[in-house]
Amino acid sequence: MSPLAELLLVLAVLGMAVKLLLLNVWRAVLFLAPGSVSVRPEAPAEGMQLPPELAPLAGQLQAQGFVPLGRHVEKPRFQKGSVSYDFAHPGAHTFATLHFSPQGEPRLYLLTPLAPEGFVLTADYQRPGFEVPGRYRSGGVPGASVERLFQAHRMRLQGFQPSEDFTWQERLRSGQAWYRGLGQREIRRQNVQGLLWTLVALAIVAGLFLGGGRPV
Rank of each mutant, 00 (worst) to 15 (best):
F166N: 02
R154M: 12
R107M: 13
S174R: 09
A96C: 07
Q103R: 14
G118P: 04
L149E: 04
P106M: 07
F130N: 13
Q169I: 09
P128C: 09
S82K: 12
E74A: 10
L157I: 05
D165W: 03
L157P: 02
G81W: 01
G134Y: 02
E105P: 06
A92K: 10
L108V: 02
Q161D: 13
E131C: 13
K80W: 15
Y125F: 13
S101V: 02
E147C: 11
P113D: 10
E170S: 14
R137K: 13
T112V: 10
P76H: 01
E74S: 10
W178S: 00
Q176F: 06
S84P: 13
P162E: 09
Y125V: 05
E170I: 10
V83A: 14
F166S: 01
S138A: 15
L172K: 02
G129V: 12
A115T: 13
R173M: 08
R137Q: 11
S138T: 14
F95C: 03
V146P: 08
Y136T: 04
S138Y: 08
T167I: 03
Y109Q: 02
A123S: 14
E74G: 06
G140M: 00
S84T: 15
V141T: 01
L182A: 05
R135Y: 15
Q158E: 12
F95M: 04
G159H: 01
Y179P: 04
L121G: 00
P90G: 03
V132N: 12
G91T: 07
L157A: 05
L172H: 00
F160W: 01
H93V: 10
A123R: 00
S174D: 13
G118M: 03
P90Q: 03
E170W: 11
Y179N: 07
E105Y: 12
Q126G: 13
R77N: 10
P116L: 08
G91L: 12
P90T: 04
E170Q: 15
E147P: 08
G118R: 00
G129P: 12
K75S: 10
L182N: 00
E164G: 15
F78H: 11
Q151M: 12
W178K: 00
S82G: 14
G104D: 09
T167A: 09
H72R: 13
P128F: 09
E105S: 13
L157D: 02
H99R: 11
P116R: 06
V132I: 14
P76Y: 01
V141M: 08
Q103A: 15
G81M: 02
L121R: 03
R137M: 09
R135L: 15
H72Q: 14
